[in-house]
Structures are given as C-alpha cells and as structure tokens.
Design a protein around this nucleic acid. Structure first.
Lengths: 189, 189
DNA sequence: TGAGTCATTCAACGAACGTAGAACGAACCG
DNA sequence: CGGTTCGTTCTACGTTCGTTGAATGACTCA
C-alpha cells in the first residue's frame, strides 16, 4: 500500500483524529449543551472509541474547556460612536454564520457552572472596554445592558430560533438595532 | 366534619404536600435547570420520598411541565408607544423580583427541547400582539428583536449575573432601555 | 369497630454515563 | 529485523438517575 499522495504518518494521523473529535464535540455541545452531550456520542460521531476521547482529552470537562476555547472576540475601541458600529458589525457576523464555539458556550452557560464562569470572565473585559468609552457615570451599566441585549438577539436567532428572527436578513436586524445600540451607548451625545 | 383544632384533613394534607413539592421543584429547576435537577433532590428538599413525587406527578417531565405552567404574562396592547411603556413596565417587574416559574423556563430552554417549544409558543402570541401595533411592514421582525433583547437583559441579570447588571437599580435599567425600546418598536413615529 | 381508602415510605431494577486499565496491532527506530 | 512506542479498541467497574411495585400505617366512613 505505497501511497505517496496520502502521507499518513503516525503523528499526522493523531492530529487529524484529535481535530475530528474536537470538531464533533463543538458541534454537539453547541447543539445539545454540556449535560446532554455524552462522551459516547462525541466518540461515535467522530467514529472513534469513547476511551480514545478520554485518552486524548483527559475528561469530559477538559474536552468541553477545549471546545469553548476563546474565539478571540474583536475588542472594541474608540469613541462611543465607533464602538456602537463595531458592536453592530460583530452582531452581523454572529448572525450570518453560526459561530460554533460561541454557541457551545452560550448553549451551556445557563446550566453548566463552569461555562457560566467562563462566559462571565470573557464578557468582563469586553464590557469594560465598552464602559470606558461611554461618556456617562453609569457607563459600566450601559455596557452590560447593551451586551446582554445583543446576546439575547443572537440566542433568539440561533438557539431559540424565534419566528421572524431565525430567518431574517442580518442586515435588517442590524439596521433595526442601530438606533437602539446608539441610544444605549450614548453614541453621538 | 367539625374539627377546629385539627386542620389536618387528609385531603388538605395532600394538597399541602403537593404544593410543597411543586414549590421546591420550581426553585430547583430555576436554580439548576432541567437536567441537573433530580427527582431525588426535589423530594429531599420537600422532605418527602422520591416515590411520592412520581406518584403525584407521574414523571419528571410532567413535574417540569407543571412547574413552568403559564404565569400569564400581561398581554400588551394599544399604540406602539403604549406597548413600549408596557414592555418596560413588565421588564421592571421581572428585574425587581425573580419570577421563579419564568426563570425555571428560561434556565432550561436552551438545553431542554420541551422547554424550548413551550417558550417559543408562549412568546409567539406575545410577539404577534406587539407586531400588530408596529406601523411598519416588518413589525413582526421588530417585535422579535425587542423580545429577544429584553429577554437577554433579564437573563443577564438573574441567570448569568453579569457584573453591574445583577445589582443595578431596575429603574435605571428601564430608563436606559426606554429610548432603545421606543426606537425598535418605532414608538412615536 | 371494622373494612377500606389513601398518603407515604422502602427496596430494588435497568439503563446510561464517566472513567480506568488491559490488550491488540501497526508504525517507528536503531 | 527485533524491540519499543503509541494510536486505538475492548471490557468492565461504580455511580447516579428515573421509575416501579409492594408494604406500612394512619385516616375515613358506614
């Protein structure tokens, strides 16, 4: 079986298998959340033995941690007006395609304490940056409000699949939200 | 029949026990979600045998259904401006005290399919009513957007407990959101 | 008072899960 | 070529859970 076109070295094979497992884990965590996603199901989806998943990732908890690893959300900056536009742009991106790692985290954060902690700390720096740019003595609160509201919209579309929201044009949604986001962040005041 | 000193009739006792179980179930479902709340934990919290919970409610699924039974959310109506104010008033209520039944539903809707279905159908009539009042050819979308955004805020406060949002004054939050809600619902245009 | 209803408990089953460790076989290396 | 590494599978253990059916004992009512 001399196959020059298929360089299946052992290290390479391992990398591929691990990536396949992690990909299926992300997909399943995003679809069903932490508790309802079993190691067995991930292994089966990746066409691998459950024991192998344990061997590579150590535990279900560690597999989950890897699955929701930072997607490095674009840090906003600039004036309040700039930030408002950046928030809307980021929202639009999150609406057009499903950000699998983010959805895995969002799906699980209400039921899995570790996911909740991860999300809180991830959103903290994000919000702080926004809060600084808001010319108001309650900038932090405004930052939290706009963050929560936008997350609600993303969840409503991808996870809850609310009517009219699940299949609407992302540009229209962003358009509708623009004045709202600008109002909350006090852009242009 | 005349037992003034012993208010413990059998029927009465049963009603109380059932109510105690249901109350603890609501609390635990709201705290931990469907999957992480066990029949055993509910029974233990209600100081009762797990078998009794089954005997009274039939199954965990049916217990959950009872726990999230409609809280009859106030149906909005009137002009777009009226509705915006009603939404803000309802939001304020949901921020001051934790609406346990609603939280049980919200906490579980991302991971429990039945809860998701229940939430979608519950929010449907709610959104429809809002959509009708919005003077716009995309009123339905605007209704869905404002609903999702407000849910995000309630979740951010009670379930995720975002900094600055979890302990802020409900009136301030409603105040910050007023122009946003009015913009999305096109109130006063 | 005695038979029967019914609230409640007890013990146990079967399934599913995370996890551990032994075992196999092919790729690697000297 | 022979030994070793290592990717991978197999089998099984212990726990937890939803659920069940029999058993208990106090209340009800004729």
């Amino acid at each position: 079986m001399s196959d020059p076109a298929a360089p299946t070295s052992r290290a390479e094979q391992r990398r591929r298998t691990e990536a396949r497992i992690l990909g299926q884990a992300r997909r399943l965590f995003a679809e069903s959340g932490y508790d309802r996603t079993t190691i067995r199901a991930v292994a089966s989806a990746a066409q691998v033995d459950p024991g192998l998943v344990m061997h590579y990732f150590g535990s279900k908890e560690k597999l989950f941690a890897r699955a929701i690893e930072p997607g490095a959300p674009p840090m906003p900056g600039g004036t309040a007006g700039d930030i408002a536009e950046q928030l809307l742009a980021h929202l639009r991106e999150s609406l057009v395609e499903e950000p699998v790692e983010s959805l895995a985290l969002l799906r699980s954060m209400l039921t899995h304490p570790e996911a909740a902690r991860e999300f809180r700390s991830a959103s903290r720096t994000y919000k702080d940056r926004i809060g600084e740019a808001i010319p108001d003595d309650e900038g932090d609160l405004r930052a939290a409000v706009v963050t929560a509201a936008l997350i609600g919209v993303v969840m409503g579309r991808h996870l809850i699949k609310l009517d009219h929201l699940a299949d609407a044009d992302p540009d229209r949604i962003a358009e509708i939200l623009r004045p709202a986001v600008r109002a909350i962040t006090r852009a242009g005041e």
